[in-house]
Amino acid sequence: MPDTLVPGPRPGPASRAARRRRAATGAALALLLAVTGCGGPAEEERAGAQPTGSAAPGAVAGPLCDALPSGAEPGSPASLVGRPPAEALAWIPVLTMFEAAVRATGMAEELAAAGGLTILAPTDDAFRATFSTANLDRLLLSDTETLRRLLREHLVDGARSAAELVAAGSVTTRAGTTLTVTAAGSGARLADKAVTVCADYRAAGARVHVIDKVLGDLPHTADEEDQHH
């Protein structure tokens, strides 16, 4: 099969083990700050993040990053730098629902809009914890207007790092909802609900932060059925 399927290995971050150690250090530091109660925003910023543009290409942070492609693997953060956002989403294996939703709603162009975008992408586990399979099928196949609104609850204008979101304190989604943003370890907590589990993927003109909950206010339907063969 054509090799072009695979974003080629690019200069990646240090080894997975090294990255794990770094993430652990960051988490421990953040925890320490929280415990001592003297971690103001300025300190948070120094501890948790670096300004946009100065981090190593593909540096991502969060507890889930270790379970995602890294280093020279296909779909690693470094290999996605500069790719169109919709394409980058297709390489992050925990985002199959979100990625399918982007295609179902025809929103690939909106993700690549000029001016940049922050994409708060819930994991497949988050979608499954929120919606029944029948509900997901309905959203993807017929109720795409609702799905489009739901996706816009996860889009914020401007490509912003997790640290920048935290520094801003609150952001407004493209659905018009204002989300409070606070620090959560090295990442961000959104609307006191979702946290970034692997933040700061850099696609072309966009930042992708993988989050652990679905935002917005659609009804919870996950318990409505026992899906089986």
Binding site: M1, D3, L5, V6, P69, E73, P74, G75, A90, W91, I92, P93, T96
Partner: peptide, 23 residues
């Protein structure tokens, strides 16, 4: 030496319809 998209991507992506037909 043929490989599916899923194998080539080390599991990051499932094999698409187009790739299934080609493979």
């Amino acid at each position: 030496n043929l490989r599916t998209q899923w194998e080539q991507t080390l599991g990051a992506q499932y094999t698409s319809d187009v790739n299934e037909y080609a493979y």
